[in-house]
Amino acid sequence: MSEIHPNQRVAVLADSQNLYHTAQSMYTRNIDYAALLEESVSDRELTRAIAYVIRADAPEEESFFDALVDIGFETQIKDIKTFPDGSKKADWDVGICLDAITLANHVDTIVLCTGDGDFTRLCHHLKHEGVRIEVICFAESTADELVEAADSFVDMSEDTDRFLL
């Protein structure tokens, strides 16, 4: 594990669907992405910040995407898929993993903003490559194995006035 230092290069990967659903179900509020990015970078050198979002033709989603860009995030946008039986699917797990692995040679730390335990194996791989892994999410919805795999964990539930709008 690399230690935190002032010139540390950081990439922030935000699983917006995971964050959104947790914030809505637990607090009926939205994520403050400016505060999330500020906490993630913490006076280090930001290399990339990517927010992975789903286009579901919801009202005001384009203004949300624009706001993310204004804050400093690149947006990766995927259209929601609707199947013949009416079920819907949209996730960025593979895209987040590919970007994290690609960025690993260019950063010292990757901050995963998600509670999804599917990223546990990714954490192990990146740590083996010498990358520090930090996770920021709500403890109540974050998989224990993801917290254990990370070098550090920030529980957004401990400061909802900061992390929620």
Rank of each mutant, 00 (worst) to 15 (best):
L19V: 05
D161K: 05
R29P: 01
M156F: 01
W92G: 13
R162G: 00
R29D: 07
M1T: 12
L13I: 07
F138S: 12
R48M: 10
D99Q: 06
E74N: 09
E140L: 07
L13C: 05
A143Q: 04
S25G: 06
A58M: 13
H124V: 11
S40G: 05
M26Q: 08
S63A: 03
K88F: 09
I4L: 00
D155K: 07
S2M: 10
E3C: 09
A90H: 09
P84H: 07
H125I: 15
R9N: 09
I133S: 06
F64G: 12
R29T: 05
A14P: 15
D144G: 12
S152F: 03
S25Q: 12
H125G: 11
I31C: 10
K78W: 03
D43E: 09
T28Y: 15
L122P: 10
L146M: 08
L165D: 03
F65G: 06
I101R: 05
D70W: 03
A90K: 05
D155A: 04
G95V: 15
D85N: 14
L146P: 11
D91E: 00
T22A: 09
V12K: 01
T114C: 02
Y33T: 09
H106F: 13
P59T: 10
A58F: 14
A14R: 10
V154C: 15
E3G: 12
C113N: 07
N18D: 01
D151I: 11
G117L: 00
V69T: 06
I80F: 02
D99M: 06
K78N: 07
P6W: 15
L98M: 09
N30C: 08
H124P: 06
T109F: 15
I96P: 12
T47Y: 12
I136L: 03
T160W: 02
D32W: 01
E61I: 08
F83S: 11
T82L: 00
F73I: 01
D79E: 15
S152L: 05
E3W: 08
D85H: 08
F138T: 12
C113S: 13
E38W: 05
V111S: 00
P84R: 04
D118Q: 08
D151T: 08
S42T: 06
M26N: 06
A56C: 09
T120P: 07
E45F: 09
D91F: 01
T160I: 01
V12A: 00
I50D: 10
D144A: 11
L165C: 05
K88Y: 12
I136N: 01
L13A: 06
F138I: 15
L103A: 12
E62V: 14
H125F: 10
A104N: 01
E129R: 12
R132A: 13
S40M: 02
A67W: 09
A104I: 07
N7D: 03
S42Y: 00
E45H: 12
A67T: 11
R44N: 14
Q8R: 15
E39C: 12
E158M: 02
A49Y: 00
D159L: 01
S42C: 08
N105S: 15
R9M: 06
R44K: 13
V12Y: 04
I136G: 03
F83R: 12
V135D: 02
K81R: 14
T47H: 14
G130W: 13
S2Y: 04
I71S: 03
S141K: 13
A104C: 00
R9L: 08
L126E: 13
I136A: 04
T120N: 04
A51F: 11
M26I: 01
V53I: 10
T142E: 11
E38K: 04
E61M: 13
